[in-house]
């Protein structure tokens, strides 16, 4: 009997550990009136998740309320986003960390039950991570023009971290704009894709900057260009794709953006509170150094201009997905 009691106590303790304890510190009269739920539309561990937890931590101070992170992965972020769009309980205390999956997902997943632009309010673009066009160290190509000329003559391959990732879509966009013979080679995540690039199994990739920055610095990979509008302070010698000035590459500006969105019925009062809190978060030293570590730049747009940016992105990726013949 003693053993049973012991075991029961143990079970109770472990479930208490699982459930966690949440105590609200918010005052009753102004937003937030309870815990704020930050939905991460991906599994624990990715960039979106890590960023969300860092932001939640800082947002907690700014809002003086609990910010609870909840992972809801599935179908390239569209499951969680669809759930948010449907609204329901707590919708005025729920925010979601959106990323390129939000706009690309709208282009490649059929029958989405929501509109990626009109069904949401767009709070703040937090960070932008540029992609880098990288080739193996022993690649014979030293600049974009040499590469494009060669890839028009012969078949070449680019690696990516999964269908519909910003890395994949950047490759497809490059292929369309430059009219080159590039074949996409899918891998299960950047971790699995990198060895193929380092070992020379594939010819090029459009990886997120933080993934390849150390390899560029150590000389294991050669950076031909960055995909952002301006040169990156991390790689000041590497030109942007728009600087190439040929093959309509001036249209090639794309970053992996991360930002917070909420349901369209998110109250104005809450939007104002969030704007203020997020502006505070983005000035914090912890946030800036974290962004620096990720090789990211603090986000530029918020509110309506953020929404306009999303609308343009959705349109652009829809075109690329159609031309590449991806899904739908």
């Amino acid at each position: 009997m003693k053993h049973i009691v012991k075991a029961a106590c143990l079970a109770a303790c472990s479930s208490a550990l699982v459930a966690g304890v949440s105590v609200s510190t918010a005052s009753a009269d102004e937003w937030p009136t309870g815990d704020v739920r930050l939905v991460v539309p991906y599994a624990p561990g990715g960039t979106t998740d890590v960023l969300s937890r860092r932001v939640a931590d800082l947002l907690q101070d700014e809002l003086d309320a609990n910010v609870v992170v909840e992972n809801r992965p599935g179908a390239g972020s569209t499951v969680a986003t669809g759930r948010l769009a449907r609204g329901g309980r707590d919708v005025d205390h729920t925010i979601l960390m959106a990323s390129p999956g939000h706009t690309i997902g709208a282009a490649i997943y059929p029958d989405l039950a929501y509109d990626p632009v009109d069904d949401f309010v767009f709070l703040q673009n937090l960070i932008d991570i540029p992609n880098v066009m990288v080739v193996p160290a022993d690649s014979p190509y030293d600049n974009v023009i040499e590469f494009v000329e060669a890839a028009r003559e012969q078949n070449m391959t680019f690696s990516h971290s999964g269908v519909g990732s910003s890395i994949h879509m950047s490759g497809e966009l490059f292929k369309t704009l430059t009219e080159t013979n590039l074949t996409a080679v899918p891998f299960a995540g950047s971790g699995a894709a990198l060895p193929a690039l380092l070992g020379g199994d594939v010819d090029v990739s459009f990886e997120n900057m933080p993934t390849v920055l150390s390899h560029i610095r150590s000389g294991d990979l050669k950076a031909l260009a960055v995909t952002s509008a301006e040169r990156s302070p991390h790689l000041p010698d590497v030109p942007t794709l728009t600087e190439v000035g040929e093959y309509s590459l001036d249209q090639f500006v794309t970053t992996a953006w991360f930002g917070l969105i909420a349901h369209e019925s998110f109250p104005q009062e809450a939007q104002d509170a969030m704007h203020e809190a997020l502006a505070g978060v983005m000035q914090r030293e912890e946030f800036l150094s974290f962004a620096e570590q990720l090789g990211a730049e603090p986000g530029q747009v918020s509110g309506e201009s953020f929404q306009q940016f999303i609308a343009q992105e959705v349109e652009r990726w829809q075109e690329v997905a159609e031309q590449a013949g991806i899904s739908q």
Binding site: G74, A75, T78, V79, I108, V163, G164
Partner: peptide
């Protein structure tokens, strides 16, 4: 789930829960 190369759906019967 989703085809790894083309992103087309396989045996999901249109159910988004099975896409992954």
């Amino acid at each position: 789930g989703l085809d790894e190369v083309y992103g087309s759906q396989r045996l999901t019967f249109g159910n988004y829960n099975l896409m992954d």
